[in-house]
Design a protein around this nucleic acid. Sequence first.
DNA 1: ATGAAAGCGCTAACAA
DNA 2: TTGTTAGCGCTTTCAT
Lengths: 337, 337
Amino acid sequence: MAARPRIKDVAEYAGVSPKTVSNVINNFEHVSERTRAAVQEAIDALGYRVNIAGRQLRQGRTGMITLAVPELDVAYFAELAKHVMDEAAARGRTVLLHSTEAVRERELAALHGFDAQFSDGVILSPLALNPRDLATRDRRLPVVLLGERPAGGSTDHVGIDNVRAAREATEHLLSRGRRRIAVVGGAVRGRQGTDRLRTDGYREALGAAGVPFDADLVIPVGAYHWRDGARAAASLVERGLGPDALLCLNDHLALGALRALHEHGRSVPGDLDVVGFDDIEASRFSVPSLTTVAPDKREIARAAVSLLLERIDAPDGAALRDHVAGHRIIVRESTGG
Amino acid sequence: MAARPRIKDVAEYAGVSPKTVSNVINNFEHVSERTRAAVQEAIDALGYRVNIAGRQLRQGRTGMITLAVPELDVAYFAELAKHVMDEAAARGRTVLLHSTEAVRERELAALHGFDAQFSDGVILSPLALNPRDLATRDRRLPVVLLGERPAGGSTDHVGIDNVRAAREATEHLLSRGRRRIAVVGGAVRGRQGTDRLRTDGYREALGAAGVPFDADLVIPVGAYHWRDGARAAASLVERGLGPDALLCLNDHLALGALRALHEHGRSVPGDLDVVGFDDIEASRFSVPSLTTVAPDKREIARAAVSLLLERIDAPDGAALRDHVAGHRIIVRESTGG
DNA sequence: ATGAAAGCGCTAACAA
DNA sequence: TTGTTAGCGCTTTCAT
């Protein structure tokens, strides 16, 4: 097979100049129908496809955007990634997917590092970055933040209303008569991360219902995996803290908790209620199925891609934006649904 | 902030020629320590990083490899992707991750399309490709196949011994006295895909034990998700086929089946045993926890990256290779463990 | 509406 | 050991 054809080959085949071929490829408007057809025929005949390296070198764009998430094997991020890829594809972009493992250096690398070079912009779901990391980032690379938003707000952002979502989930538990509601993965103080915001919402709901807040029921976790949820639930039971419900800050934690409660002979929703966040597919099939706060992943993906593409097209354009995506509570067996 | 520095800027700063800077960047050996140090200092001072488009245009390499899997939200592939990224990083490569949704056109795009251009080679887990697609692929792009291997074998391949793995899993069920073992996701005829190979292994085990094969117990599924497993298990029970065990061809199917059996009042492992494939994290925390065939994902990732990098470095090098990675059966509660 | 020329940043080939 | 030249494929600028 011959070497890959270049624009020059197409031009010669079609009897036009390279520039004209370029005009056709890039849908430049001032091209006669005749010429366009001739060039297209040459392209098809030779099997020509643009060399992106050449194009990028010249115009400084790749047509790719990076999506950097903390962990691909957290189902929420895998599902979100699928939506982002769909949305990007619909808009003619390709997604370069990265897993940062929630390590600050790797989150920084998404913003500054090697990988960012392939990319016209980055959608980043940060966990470890601090405000200064963002303040000192290279402004030439457009960035949209997902979920967590380190204070300082120098970057476009997409997320749900975490305070309200947690408040509603807690209200649901309260409405079922639960009073000793533990927060698995919660945080009472510290930066305004997702964990903190959701815990704040939880406290708001307790306060409004006149239920006293018990700091012992806020259980920090190392990560948001099954094993961490299982460990937290086991510890709650073994320490005799007498919880009658678990508000788990993601579904993996909740599913792990279900397992631990089962091992400890507690029935859900008989003895305790359990609620999660994210609405991953597993939660529809667990035993019992899991009540959860379902963020609108499609809306999140769509907003993130839109904001990013706008930034790419107009780097100094609009003011900072913060898109608040919708969410709803899906009641399933784990709270009597 | 100034424009991104180029090699020329570094060269001027260090008082050398651009070529010398290039030599340093690429660890060319014939560079004096003095010069190397001076250049490095200039690089650090200016914050220089190579422009990959320029490099790719010149030498035709990007340092990136593509991993294309059918579905990222199938946990097995997310976990595998993590291993591949780790392995690639350890070898100085970046991974471009793609989800093909098991659509033939998208699998082809991984081999031929736009995306492949950024990439020095592709690790592809195909589901929809046919042998001709591979036979007619562009040989300039090195490819390693994972899991499925369309017949014809013109491509390096990494997988487990599916026949043996399924036989061993079936033997495990037989040893527990099970005789009416259904295969969820199985295939009796057709191309030698993973489903067919595993069903063959199942039949081998039945044959060796003198248990008659019943084609009604082979249940095809549309996809390998919870919902498909749930549907298949429900249908088995409702049709009164009287299975006493389910060999599910991945863990998602098995976990979905557990849910359906629970809904139908069947106890696992009391009334039926259930076995899966993949050993995803969810299977350690389901109720009951799931017995499963665990492929050595790390070995698969390592072998795939190694084979691919060797091909990239020596496109016309070694003969075709087929790496058979290890697996083991992990016995958990769903078969009395 | 189309073409000619120049150059994006880098490194291969060759020269010194 | 280091420097010079040329050109990878594309698109921008300017000319026609």
